[in-house]
Amino acid sequence: MTLIATTPKPPYYAVIFSSTLTKTHEGYADMADKMMELALQQPGFLGVESAREALGITVSYWQDLESIKNWKNNIEHLKAQKLGYEKWYASYKTRISKVERDYE
Protein backbone atom coordinates (compact mmCIF):
# COMPACT_ATOMS: atom_id res chain seq x y z
CA MET A 1 0.00 0.00 0.00
CA THR A 2 1.33 3.42 -0.92
CA LEU A 3 1.61 5.97 1.88
CA ILE A 4 0.73 8.92 -0.35
CA ALA A 5 -2.69 8.81 -1.97
CA THR A 6 -2.97 9.00 -5.74
CA THR A 7 -5.51 11.68 -6.49
CA PRO A 8 -6.96 13.05 -9.74
CA LYS A 9 -6.41 16.51 -11.13
CA PRO A 10 -8.02 19.10 -8.80
CA PRO A 11 -10.51 20.18 -7.77
CA TYR A 12 -11.46 17.52 -5.24
CA TYR A 13 -12.07 17.55 -1.49
CA ALA A 14 -10.09 16.56 1.59
CA VAL A 15 -11.53 15.56 4.94
CA ILE A 16 -8.92 16.10 7.64
CA PHE A 17 -9.61 14.23 10.86
CA SER A 18 -7.30 14.99 13.79
CA SER A 19 -7.58 13.16 17.10
CA THR A 20 -5.96 12.27 20.36
CA LEU A 21 -6.79 8.92 21.92
CA THR A 22 -7.90 7.99 25.39
CA LYS A 23 -6.02 5.25 27.24
CA THR A 24 -8.59 2.74 25.94
CA HIS A 25 -7.37 1.39 22.60
CA GLU A 26 -9.08 -2.02 22.57
CA GLY A 27 -10.73 -2.56 19.20
CA TYR A 28 -9.54 0.76 17.74
CA ALA A 29 -7.08 -0.64 15.17
CA ASP A 30 -9.58 -3.27 14.01
CA MET A 31 -12.28 -0.62 13.58
CA ALA A 32 -9.88 1.66 11.69
CA ASP A 33 -9.06 -1.21 9.31
CA LYS A 34 -12.76 -1.98 8.86
CA MET A 35 -13.53 1.67 8.07
CA MET A 36 -10.72 1.73 5.51
CA GLU A 37 -12.14 -1.33 3.76
CA LEU A 38 -15.60 0.25 3.77
CA ALA A 39 -14.36 3.65 2.54
CA LEU A 40 -12.66 1.98 -0.41
CA GLN A 41 -16.10 0.79 -1.54
CA GLN A 42 -17.76 4.22 -1.34
CA PRO A 43 -18.59 6.12 -4.53
CA GLY A 44 -16.46 9.24 -4.79
CA PHE A 45 -13.68 7.98 -2.48
CA LEU A 46 -10.29 8.86 -3.95
CA GLY A 47 -7.72 7.82 -1.33
CA VAL A 48 -6.39 8.31 2.18
CA GLU A 49 -3.25 9.21 4.10
CA SER A 50 -2.95 8.50 7.81
CA ALA A 51 -0.45 8.86 10.65
CA ARG A 52 -1.32 7.67 14.14
CA GLU A 53 1.01 8.72 16.93
CA ALA A 54 0.42 11.09 19.87
CA LEU A 55 -1.72 13.08 17.45
CA GLY A 56 -3.57 11.03 14.87
CA ILE A 57 -4.22 12.65 11.51
CA THR A 58 -6.16 11.01 8.71
CA VAL A 59 -6.79 12.81 5.45
CA SER A 60 -9.28 11.21 3.10
CA TYR A 61 -9.90 12.49 -0.40
CA TRP A 62 -13.28 12.70 -2.08
CA GLN A 63 -14.69 13.58 -5.47
CA ASP A 64 -17.35 15.95 -4.14
CA LEU A 65 -19.21 17.16 -1.05
CA GLU A 66 -22.10 14.75 -1.69
CA SER A 67 -19.70 11.79 -1.44
CA ILE A 68 -18.40 13.13 1.89
CA LYS A 69 -21.96 13.52 3.19
CA ASN A 70 -22.84 9.98 2.13
CA TRP A 71 -19.74 8.61 3.92
CA LYS A 72 -20.51 10.58 7.10
CA ASN A 73 -24.02 9.10 7.13
CA ASN A 74 -23.01 5.51 6.26
CA ILE A 75 -24.58 3.26 8.93
CA GLU A 76 -21.36 1.37 9.72
CA HIS A 77 -19.39 4.61 9.81
CA LEU A 78 -21.98 6.10 12.20
CA LYS A 79 -21.44 3.14 14.54
CA ALA A 80 -17.66 3.67 14.40
CA GLN A 81 -18.08 7.40 15.06
CA LYS A 82 -20.23 6.70 18.13
CA LEU A 83 -17.64 4.28 19.54
CA GLY A 84 -14.90 6.81 18.85
CA TYR A 85 -16.69 9.61 20.66
CA GLU A 86 -17.65 7.40 23.61
CA LYS A 87 -14.53 5.27 23.96
CA TRP A 88 -11.42 6.11 21.94
CA TYR A 89 -11.10 9.87 21.39
CA ALA A 90 -9.99 12.25 24.11
CA SER A 91 -10.39 15.03 21.53
CA TYR A 92 -11.02 15.31 17.80
CA LYS A 93 -11.69 17.80 15.03
CA THR A 94 -12.86 17.34 11.45
CA ARG A 95 -12.08 19.83 8.72
CA ILE A 96 -13.30 19.74 5.11
CA SER A 97 -11.30 21.54 2.45
CA LYS A 98 -11.46 21.97 -1.30
CA VAL A 99 -8.17 21.08 -2.97
CA GLU A 100 -7.64 23.51 -5.80
CA ARG A 101 -4.03 22.74 -6.56
CA ASP A 102 -1.56 19.95 -5.92
CA TYR A 103 1.90 19.16 -7.22
CA GLU A 104 4.83 16.81 -6.71
Rank of each mutant, 00 (worst) to 15 (best):
W88R: 11
G84Y: 05
L78R: 14
A90V: 01
L78V: 12
K98W: 09
R52K: 02
V99H: 02
E66A: 00
S97M: 11
S97A: 14
A80F: 12
A80W: 09
W88G: 08
G56Q: 10
K79G: 03
A80Q: 09
N70E: 13
I96H: 00
L78S: 06
V99T: 07
L65W: 03
K98A: 11
L65C: 08
R52I: 11
E49G: 13
L78Q: 15
V59I: 14
I75E: 15
Y92N: 08
D102T: 08
A90D: 11
I57K: 01
E100F: 01
K93V: 13
D64P: 06
I57E: 04
W71A: 03
E49Q: 09
K72F: 01
K93C: 11
E100D: 03
E100I: 02
N70W: 10
E49A: 13
L83K: 03
E66I: 02
L83P: 02
A90F: 15
Q63T: 12
K87V: 09
I96T: 08
W62A: 04
G84I: 04
H77E: 00
Y89S: 01
A80H: 10
L55V: 11
T94S: 01
S50D: 06
I75G: 06
K98P: 09
N74Y: 12
I75A: 15
K72Q: 00
L78Y: 02
L78I: 15
I57M: 10
I75H: 09
H77M: 00
D102G: 05
S60Y: 05
N74Q: 15
A54H: 10
K72W: 05
S91V: 03
Y61P: 14
R101V: 08
K87N: 00
T58E: 09
E100Q: 02
N73E: 15
R52P: 04
K82W: 00
V99Q: 03
R101D: 08
E53L: 10
I96G: 00
N74L: 05
N70P: 04
A80T: 10
Y92Q: 07
E76Q: 06
A54D: 15
E53T: 13
S91M: 01
